[in-house]
Simulated assay, not measured.
Amino acid sequence: MQSIKVADYYNHRPVKFKATMPIETAVERLLQSGQTGGPVVDDLGTIIGFVSEQDCLQHMLTSTYQNEAHTVVGDVMTKEPLCVTPEESVMTLAENMKVDKPKMYPVCDEQGKLLGIITRAHILLALDKHLHCNYTSGHRFV
């Protein structure tokens, strides 16, 4: 199971954001994509942050009460997000995701360039395929 890699399951075309993007535009992108968050990249494609629905929700509430809307993604994003590499084990990542960890990780190369994202749903798919393969090949779990 340790041989199952992130590279086999991550989304290669995630919704991504720029730090200068208005928060309202980011919210529209999140709603259209169904993602719960996404990586923030610079002009070279290097990850510089992560913005989540929760980050946006706080801002949207404040904007609604104050009837203002001039915040950008860079104001609310998490800086220095946790990234994984394509070669990391799905099992190790699954262990990290179990408790109080992000539901989604950016997948980056060694230079910090964004390659995609991997979510809990991707991890569940990997585990399900592995268990199903073992079950149908005659392995039984006790």
Rank of each mutant, 00 (worst) to 15 (best):
Q2L: 08
S3A: 13
I4C: 02
K5L: 12
V6R: 03
V6A: 03
Y9G: 02
N11D: 12
H12S: 06
H12D: 05
K16L: 03
A19W: 01
T20C: 04
T20F: 02
M21H: 06
M21T: 07
M21V: 07
M21W: 07
P22C: 01
I23Y: 00
V27R: 07
Q35F: 14
G37W: 00
G38N: 08
P39N: 06
V41P: 03
G45H: 03
I47R: 09
G49N: 07
V51M: 08
E53Y: 04
Q54N: 09
D55P: 10
C56F: 00
L57I: 04
H59I: 13
M60P: 07
T62W: 02
Q66K: 15
E68H: 14
A69T: 12
V72P: 10
V73E: 01
V73L: 03
G74I: 09
G74T: 11
G74P: 05
G74Q: 08
D75N: 07
M77L: 13
K79F: 10
K79D: 11
K79V: 13
E80F: 05
T85K: 15
P86Q: 03
E87T: 08
E87F: 03
S89A: 00
S89I: 01
M91W: 10
M91N: 06
T92K: 13
A94C: 05
N96V: 06
M97T: 04
K98Q: 09
V99G: 11
D100L: 14
K103I: 09
V107L: 01
V107T: 01
C108N: 07
C108Y: 05
D109M: 01
D109A: 02
E110D: 05
G112H: 05
G112T: 02
T119Q: 08
T119P: 04
R120S: 08
A121H: 13
H122C: 05
A126Q: 02
D128N: 07
H130D: 15
L131V: 11
N134M: 15
N134F: 15
N134H: 15
Y135D: 14
Y135I: 14
T136M: 13
H139Q: 15
H139D: 15
